[in-house]
């Protein structure tokens, strides 16, 4: 039963990501990406990590939805996108090498058998509680750093998108601010 489910979803995920990479069509690529990301959650469910599976679905639905918004703005999503390729051999070589390096990095510890579970499963505790325990003890600092990064990204987004942000009101003198508002009122 588990093997059938694993191979079905393995094939589905691989095919979906292949479509994402190989197609010239923005809509096909985005939809295949979304489908692939959601199919990955099946592996979490198969491994008993229900919480991470649900989070995978929720996070990637939202993330790919934002990509769709960009796709809508930049492309006619019903047509093929013609890409300008100067040297396809170079692109193929470099991306192939990068992919191989990543595979080597992740398989090396498996091949040498150097993996040990530092935080074994605690009995009688739910899946989401276990994630919480590890997250708020061992990984507390990375967790908080990620939160700070998100805050930085949010403030940067507001500054970049906001109007009237090219002058700093705190650095101006009172008269200058008053003069500016008066000019605005006259216009």
């Amino acid at each position: 039963m588990e093997a059938i489910a694993f191979y079905t979803f393995a094939i589905l995920t691989t095919v979906m990501f292949l479509i994402t990479v190989l197609t010239n069509h923005a809509l096909y690529a985005l939809s295949a990406l979304a489908a692939g990301m959601i199919f990955i959650s099946a592996f979490f469910f198969l491994l008993g990590a229900d919480f991470l599976g649900a989070i995978q679905i929720i996070v990637y639905t939202g993330a790919v939805m934002a990509l769709y918004a960009f796709g809508m703005m930049f492309f006619d999503t019903t047509r093929d996108v013609v890409e300008k390729r100067n040297s396809p051999q170079l692109v193929f070589g470099l991306s192939g090498l990068a992919a191989l390096t990543v595979v080597a990095i992740f398989t090396a510890p498996i091949v040498s058998g150097n993996i040990t579970a530092l935080y074994p499963v605690i009995d009688g505790v739910g899946n989401s509680q276990q994630v919480g325990m590890v997250l708020f003890t061992k990984y507390l600092i990375p967790f908080e750093v990620a939160a700070v990064m998100l805050l930085v990204a949010m403030i940067a987004g507001i500054v970049l998108a906001g109007k009237k942000m090219d002058h700093s009101l705190t650095l101006m003198k009172e008269e200058e601010i008053e003069r500016q508002t008066n000019e605005k009122a006259q216009v």
């Binding site: 939809s31 959601i38 229900d50 919480f51 599976g53 679905i57 939805m65 769709y68 019903t78």
Partner: peptide
């Protein structure tokens, strides 16, 4: 044991229907 998360997550995927239909 993650009932409500699963329900809301999968319902959210439902929004892809109108989105994809209208883009296509």
């Amino acid at each position: 044991n993650i009932g409500i998360l699963y329900v809301l997550g999968v319902m959210a995927v439902g929004f892809y229907g109108p989105l994809l239909g209208s883009l296509a």
